[in-house]
Structure formats: C-alpha cells, structure tokens
Nucleic acid binder design. Structure first.
Lengths: 173, 173
DNA sequence: AATTTTATGTCAGCCTTGTTGACATATCTC
DNA sequence: GAGATATGTCAACAAGGCTGACATAAAATT
C-alpha cells in the first residue's frame, strides 16, 4: 500500500489510488466473450464464399464508405498494405469490390462494393444487428446510447474524432 | 417496405420489422474500433516477454481461476488442444504457469500461475483497466452496470450462464 | 524540365495462431 | 479387463498478420 502521505499518486476522483486500483476483471472478460461471439456470427456465411474475417472487414468498410481509398482503408484497419492487398485482390477478382482510378488524383484507387458486394455486406451486418438488438431488447431505452458512448470513449483519444466522423458522419462532441 | 397487412412479419416490439430492420452500423463499427484498441494495449508489454495475444488469454484465465483444468480452459478459449498446448508449453517452460496433477482425478492437469505469472497477468489487467476507467469516468454511475449487462446479453445465450459463473463467480440472473 | 514525394502494387519470406488427423499414455469408470 | 476420458504430441496446413525491397505512375516541388 502506498501511504496516504503521497497525495500526488492519488487520482482526483473519489480517492481511488491509481497505483493499486483493482482490475476491472468483469468488463475485461465480458468484452472478450462478447467479441468472440459477435465476430463468430458471420463466419459460417463467409466460409461459403471462401472468405475469412479479413475479407469481411474490408468489404464492410468499403460497402459503408463508397469511394474509400487504399490509404484510408489502411488507416481504419491498421494493417500493412501487403496484408490488405492479399484479401482485397481476392474481393476484386471475385467481383465483390471494384477499384476505380481517382478522378482528382489519378494515383489513388477508389474502392466501391459491387451489387454482390453490397448484398453480402448487408447480409453480414444484419446478422450482427440481430445479436445487438437481442441484447438491447428488454434493456432501458438509454442503454444503446450509453453503450455507444462507452465504446467511443474506449477508443484511443487520438483516434476518436476520426472514428466519430466515420461512424456518425459528423465530428461533433 | 413490407405492407402493414402482413403482421406475422412484424416483431412484438414497437412495430419494428424483422425482415428489413436497418443495420446497427454504429454499434457494429464502434465495437470493432474499441476492441482493436483494447487488445492493443498489452501488445507492447507482451512483446518484451516474447509472448503474443494467445499467451495473454491463457495466462489471464489461469491467473484468475487457479486450478483451472485443460478441458475448462479449452472451453473458455474455444480453440483446439493443439493450439492451446503450443502456447501453454511456452508459458510453463518460461515459468509463468505451473501444471500440477489433479488430486481427485489424476488424469487432469490443474493450472496455476506462478509469482511471475501473476505479476504479468496483473500488469496487463491493470493496463486494460486504465482504459476502461478512463472511458467510464465522466459517465453516469449506472453506465458500468449498463455496459456490463449489455456485454453479457451479447454472448450466446447457451453460454451466458457459464460466462456469468466464470466472471462473477455466481449464476444468478 | 528535372527531381522528389506520394499512392499504390508486388515479390519473397517469416511469424503467430488457428485448423485437422492420427496416435500414445495414464487413469478412471463400469 | 474393457472402454471411456483427460491429456500430450507429431505432422501438415491455412489465415492473416509482419518486414524489407523494389517498381510504377502521377502529383508536387524546385
């Protein structure tokens, strides 16, 4: 125990000591289990197309943000261009995503989901939505808003404005 | 739009139509970004020990549940025993986890974190707790409870009693 | 106009962590 | 004693990360 005589080590709120605060095991573990099940839903369907989770992530964001560039996608996914290219190439070959040359900057590749691509992306999103809605049903009406704000605050502060922009299409606090 | 004349296609609550409900893109994407940052925290530290995320998960649950058996651990992680064994072997060799023969059933291996093991597990848990507390600070006091219940309800219903038992050490609803 | 920077693509190889299938051993249960 | 169970292990493979090096076209700079 750190003695009371060292007030600089105490956080401002409720006398909780930063150095020996007890781990939030419940939220840590619930987050693990919830995410495990959440991402497993789409797996069966992706399998039928010969795709994996990496394909899902790429297709999802391209479908959501038509005209996304490679650089923007790399920034969202936080993987290397080599990793991205492996799955993106397959999505393009199998005609789920289309790559067009940029208009203002012709070095850029603007990515668009094809009809097939949108269909699959929507199918997967609805599957995950089903789980989310089941969880929210029977909870207080404010639950969705609370969860949404919590998840946003969990993100690196340096990135949260960017995420807010991507997810909500706005940058307001 | 499905015409109002087909009531069987409507869910019980608030007239929301199951067949064309709009995807919850916000929660889907926020969950992705939040989890991405959440698991990235421990990575730097794990690197120093030559461990990866798989080692982290094993060490975490063994540290939290001393005496865990292989079978129980496999059920928690949902991986094959070969995958588990690869990382578990390293954790034992490097003296972060100890494996003792079961007392009542001597076929079982009971897993325990060593002193070193507990130290590392705690260090990583505190790192993740820091992020969780930062997110919760400034939110309503009920936020933690709401988020916790939401995450639990996100888990497969067939598994939620088990998870509740693991996380809270109880099985009450 | 020449040079440098930027956006993207690609090759080659490596690592972690998942998978399947087969088989071995010790121990418990019937 | 026979069969089921808990664990360990070998081998091979796949997905999806990574690094490093190099190539090209187009934009930006000087």
């Amino acid at each position: 125990m750190v003695p009371d005589a060292i007030p600089v080590l105490r956080s401002q709120q409720s006398g909780k000591d930063i150095l020996d605060e007890q781990p939030a095991y419940d939220l840590i573990e619930l987050f693990f289990f919830a995410y495990r099940d959440f991402v497993s839903d789409p797996d069966r369907i992706l399998d039928e197309y010969g795709f994996g989770r990496a394909h899902h992530r790429v297709l999802h964001f391209v479908s959501r943000q038509p005209g996304l560039t490679i650089a923007e996608l790399l920034d969202i996914l936080r993987i290397t261009k080599q990793s991205l290219n492996r799955v993106l190439k397959e999505l393009i070959e199998k005609d789920f995503i289309e790559s067009r040359m940029g208009t203002s900057d012709r070095r850029q590749r603007l990515l668009f989901a094809t009809g097939k691509g949108h269909d699959l992306a929507l199918k997967l999103a609805k599957l995950q939505t089903r789980r989310i809605m089941r969880a929210l049903s029977g909870m207080e009406p404010e639950a969705k808003e609370t969860v949404s704000r919590y998840l946003l605050r969990l993100i690196d502060p340096s990135d949260s404005a960017h995420v807010k922009q991507l997810v909500f299409g706005t940058n307001e606090t």
